[in-house]
Design a protein around this nucleic acid. Structure first.
Lengths: 180, 180, 180, 180
DNA sequence: TATGAATGAGGGTTCATTCAT
DNA sequence: CATGAATGAACCCTCATTCAT
């Protein structure tokens, strides 16, 4: 049988993604997870702490996903990275949506500010390593631009436009970066 | 003396931006605006309605800001649009932050979904009109890409990275689009 | 009809006296006072604040009770004071019991520490003024002794011994002080 | 190594004295004592039972402290008793404070009512035996007065006045009783 | 003896909303 | 237009106690 603490984390992650952190009560989580309130507060000191644990786990899996393959030429790494991200985008919308709303909602932002900084720096670093192999002089600017493109597409796809031409934009970006 | 209803809207806008919609109570608004609860509920049927009125106003001023100048060549229009947006980004961070968190927080998203769709369509339309003058075959894709770039930069600048190289990215985009 | 805020204060005073502060829930108070929780929190910021308001009121009425009559000889003042206090002791046990448990229970002590200091100083001052008219050199010591006797009798009568010989001790003290 | 049950008693005594019975959770005790909840509930049936055991122990040591020396003249016994109590008062404030708040807080009062009666009667009895040797006709009244003086001084010293003239009052009482 | 996961009732507090004035 | 008292449901959290291991 699965660890109850893990169950709580899983359920909470889903509910936070679907309804938002503030609109998800601890009671919601308990009922959805089939556990008592006491159990939740036995494993976590507060609702905030549940969120923080989720964010840290999420960061780990994002970094895992973006791990570059150092032996390949940088252009290939970029292409693979793009393919990776777009594939995830399609298959785990909720996961990305959660991260967007955690980062932009003032209440959760404050709560996670330290973790957000760490994660962002790590992601930038990982992209910059690739661009250092392409154009060291402009690698910072290019990295920020690359990240902005990814973030912008994600945002528009996930939260703005229905019928978003995700595939077309993926091809567009792959074409742009494979011959950069 | 200023209209009390307008005062409420102004104060609510600021508080929603600073603290988030859910964490701002009607009482907060009343105290900050120096009016009574009765007054607020005389002008608005609910807290949700305050938010909707804010969103509609915000949409108007965003469209105003993005209004193209039809007589100029499309490249110039793009450049002017970019300059416009980046200038606003710098001078009214709170305004953009509010829009980000309203759109990505599930609770407010639902509330505003109709208005969000309208606004997004209008913005897309206004950009697409310009790209139609450049490359009608790809204007949709190019418009989405353009919007993604703007949105991504905004998002990273406003909510992710401290010391974001906003100016460098502005120049980068202007260079990209002025000779497209 | 009586002010609901006053009703809450009255009911809370009684319940705190009967059950203790910690064992009296806000819900208890609401039900006993026939008001809603919202009403209580509309008038008081917290349960603690209710207690503080009660303590301040109590202090006022204690000082009122101990007000000396400056034109009389000090011995008479002492006798009147003793008679006053013993009469109150008999007729308002709950009132004194409340004050005892508020002052000795660590949680309420902390909460009220400032008010407790003020009250104690005021009471001491009021007694010392009388003893200054009897023996200025020893007035401090005599005041503390007098207060200790009163406090000790109160305490033993209210909270220790059933069948306490309150009258006999009153006579004893009156005899002691009328010819001091 | 010390008995774990004794450790629990010691820790609980300290915490009850510092924070009050109601504000001390079983979990507080467990953590401070370095034992598990299961262990505590193995040795005690309930939190209340811990308190009762503490009170009984406390009573024993109080009676021990007040034990009179029958062969001496009663005046000397009184003086020795006063010196004993004041010495304890100075050196173990927490111990006395605990007893005060246990006796005056309604919730703990009820719980301990039987033990409180027993203790009080025993103390009165032990004092009365001395006064019987001085003035059998008035020994009851004198005993209650004596106890009231001691209790009043303790109460004011422990819980009311900072900078209490404890020594002066001790001398005052010793002078009063040594030539009674 | 000893652990700590698990329960569930109840605690203090917040808040959108209503309504008499 | 304007006030603010009043409601009641919901929220986060605490805690004495139980029990499988």
């Amino acid at each position: 049988m699965k660890d109850k603490k893990s169950t709580v984390i899983e359920v909470a992650t889903r509910l936070f993604a679907e309804q938002g952190f503030d609109k998800t009560s601890v009671d919601n989580i308990c009922k959805a997870a089939g556990v008592s309130k006491g159990l939740v507060y036995h494993h976590f000191n507060s609702k905030d702490e549940i969120l923080q644990e989720i964010f840290v786990q999420t960061t780990k899996s994002m970094l895992e996903m973006n791990k570059s393959v150092p032996n390949e030429p940088p252009e290939n790494q970029l292409v693979k990275l793009i393919e990776n991200i777009f594939s995830q985008l399609e298959h785990d919308k909720l996961f990305f949506q959660l991260n967007l709303n955690l980062m932009f909602q003032p209440s959760t932002r404050k709560l996670l500010s330290h973790h957000i900084k760490e994660r962002s720096a790590a992601l930038l670093d990982s992209v910059k390593k690739i661009f250092d192999g392409i154009d060291p002089d402009q690698s910072t600017k290019l990295s920020f631009m690359f990240i902005a493109e990814i973030d912008g597409v994600s945002l528009d796809y996930l939260s703005v436009y229905e019928n978003y031409p995700l595939k077309a934009l993926k091809e567009h970006l792959i074409n742009k970066y494979k011959n950069i």
